[in-house]
Computed example of a mutant assay.
Amino acid sequence: MNVFNTLNIPAANAICYSGFREGQQPGGVYPNYHEIKEDLEILSSSWKYLRLYDCDKHAQTVLEVIQKENFDFKIMLGSYIVAEMNNFGCPWGGGIYSEEELQENRIKNQNQIEKLINWANTYSDIIFSTSVGNEACVDWTDHYVPVDRVVEFVKMVKQNTKQPVTFCENYVPWLTKLKPLTEVVDFISIHTYPVWEYKHIHESLEYTKQNYYAVANTYPNIPVVITEAGWATNSNGKGIHPENVSEENQKIYYNDLITWSTQEKILTFFFEAFDENWKGSPEPLEPEKHWGLFKIDRTPKLVMQNETITQKINV
């Protein structure tokens, strides 16, 4: 079952967008109106759907630019929820907070969900769906939120908005611990990253298919969307083998993924539009910095050079 048939979402290309440039980062310097307009002009020729991660200053500017400049984009707007529970299993040592911090986070999350509701109603002509969080239930997260709390958020948003509501998470938790969420979301949103799981480029699409169908076959009556799938172009060797990432491999994965998801009518948000240097460690080859189809200076990587993206999904 695909999302278009049940939610009446028109077919179109989709991509994850975060517009932080050199020297910018969440909580610090944000992209200005002109910079975001420039980004949207780059993306407008190839994509219709953008995924935004948080109800922050960045997202607000994106919505304002789309509205004032009459860009033909529709937004999946997320609310980035932070830790409400310690996760002692976080592999990089994050996820540990005092009880006072956790209580403050619960208040922050409540406020974020209320902002998500407000913006979904204010920009109802632009926002086509909402997500109450991102990777907050997977075992390795540093911002763990209990599943029953996420269920509360979904119910709250559904009661106060008209758009379909989801939660974005790695494919693995959907198979087990997120079963209560499947009873309240309008569609399931999964993330699949073969390169993080040490898959070679030539087995990457098959692995993504396995991830997708594992979830889709478990819940045959619920639409499943891919809200993140991508391929890094650099690595310092931490978590991803350097020999397995390149612009050539990114192009192979992108083209294979788009061909398959188009044929199967699966809404797929490619991760991501632009490189983001603020992410991960200070090391220049930190893989978190290198997932964009465009570099930090907005020049196209190999897959976007002399390419016209023609992904169309016929309902």
Rank of each mutant, 00 (worst) to 15 (best):
G19F: 00
P31G: 13
K37H: 08
S44A: 05
V29S: 08
Q60E: 09
W47Q: 02
C55M: 05
Y30H: 09
Y30K: 05
D54G: 04
G28E: 04
N8I: 05
K48R: 10
N5L: 12
Y30W: 13
I66G: 03
D56Q: 04
I42Q: 05
L40M: 13
E38G: 08
I42C: 15
H34D: 10
R51D: 15
K57V: 12
G27M: 03
A11W: 13
G19P: 09
A14K: 05
L43I: 01
L63T: 00
W47K: 01
F71E: 15
S44T: 03
C16T: 06
T61W: 00
V3M: 15
I15V: 06
F20H: 08
I9Q: 11
I15T: 02
V3T: 09
S46M: 14
V3S: 10
Y49S: 11
I36D: 02
S45D: 11
D39T: 12
N70Y: 05
Y30I: 09
Y17A: 03
F20A: 09
K68L: 11
R51L: 14
G23W: 04
E41R: 15
E41S: 13
V62H: 02
L63S: 01
Y17T: 02
V65L: 00
Y17H: 10
S45R: 12
K68Y: 06
S45Y: 10
F71I: 05
K68M: 15
F20T: 14
I15H: 01
F71W: 10
I66R: 00
E22R: 14
L43S: 01
A59I: 02
G23C: 14
P10N: 08
E35L: 13
E41T: 13
P10E: 05
I9N: 06
R21S: 14
Y30Q: 08
S46R: 13
A11V: 10
N32R: 05
L50N: 00
Y33E: 06
A11I: 12
H58P: 13
N13C: 12
S18C: 04
A59K: 02
L40F: 05
G27L: 13
Y49C: 14
L7E: 03
E38N: 13
H34S: 07
C55W: 00
K37S: 14
E22A: 08
G19A: 11
F4P: 06
V3A: 12
D39Q: 06
Q25I: 05
G28H: 15
I15P: 06
L52R: 04
V62S: 03
P10V: 11
Q24M: 08
E69A: 08
I66C: 12
V3D: 11
V29D: 14
Q24W: 12
E69I: 01
R21P: 00
D54K: 15
F20V: 13
A59E: 11
Y17D: 07
L50Y: 00
Y33I: 11
